[in-house]
């Protein structure tokens, strides 16, 4: 019976895969030429890289709510009762410590470069924030966790900073007679860089806190 059920499931899913494959390879009727629309509006977006323009300007609302989703995930993790601290972790080796001291400055530099590069070429706040978070996790694994107590005391202010700045800009554009998040093209480049800078910091802090999980910040507090 069990063998029959698993065979039926496999068959059903193979059929589903075939139907899906047939669907996605069918020619679609061309709708509006979105890439051309984006390329046409690029001049007023404040940046010259189309993906950054979509993320921070044309669809800024999505990005704002995405930062809120990160905050909600962090709140969910921090609500859980703390786990016992991990036992028997291996001591940090000398190679890892030396590698971390070499890599950490480079990672931070590349993260800032990605933020700055996002205006003109592939890069941006999310990639840079992820890289900064990776630097934080590498520092943790290499035993350089002195920055943690600092993080513990300012976790929520730092994590909320990106959303707060984004909302402040949104309120500013609304009050200036425009629409919500309709960045004025004269200052759009600067505004995007400011939003992205704070968002990068918040994303990195949130991701490191998500990696630490439930209540480990308190456990490591010296």
């Amino acid at each position: 019976m069990k063998a029959f059920a698993s065979a039926a499931l496999a068959l059903l899913l193979a059929g589903l895969a075939a139907v899906l494959a047939w669907t996605v390879t069918r020619p679609v009727t061309p709708g509006r030429d979105v890439p051309a629309l984006i390329a046409g509006a690029l001049d007023v977006s404040g940046v010259s890289h189309p993906v950054t323009a979509v993320l921070l300007n044309f669809r800024g609302y999505d990005t704002l709510l995405e930062l809120v989703v990160l905050l909600i995930a962090l709140a969910g993790v921090r609500c859980l009762a703390p786990l016992p601290p991990p036992r028997g972790s291996a001591p940090v080796g000398g190679v890892l410590r030396e590698l971390a001291s070499l890599l950490l400055p480079v990672l931070v530099l590349v993260a800032v470069y990605l933020l700055w590069a996002g205006a003109t070429r592939p890069g941006g706040a999310f990639q840079g924030g992820a890289l900064l978070a990776a630097a934080g996790i590498l520092a943790l694994l290499a035993g350089r966790d002195r920055f943690l107590w600092r993080l513990e005391h300012r976790l929520w202010p730092l994590a909320c900073l990106g959303v707060a700045v984004f909302l402040a800009v949104a309120a500013g554009t609304l009050a200036a007679g425009g629409v919500l998040l309709g960045l004025p093209s004269a200052h759009a480049g600067t505004l995007i860089l400011v939003i992205e800078g704070f968002a990068l910091l918040s994303i990195a802090v949130t991701l490191v806190a998500l990696f630490l999980g439930t209540g480990e910040l308190e456990d490591r507090d010296p």
Partner: peptide
């Protein structure tokens, strides 16, 4: 096309 790329990054 930049639009799906931005959605996928999100």
């Amino acid at each position: 096309d930049p639009l799906p790329q931005a959605l996928v990054i999100t």
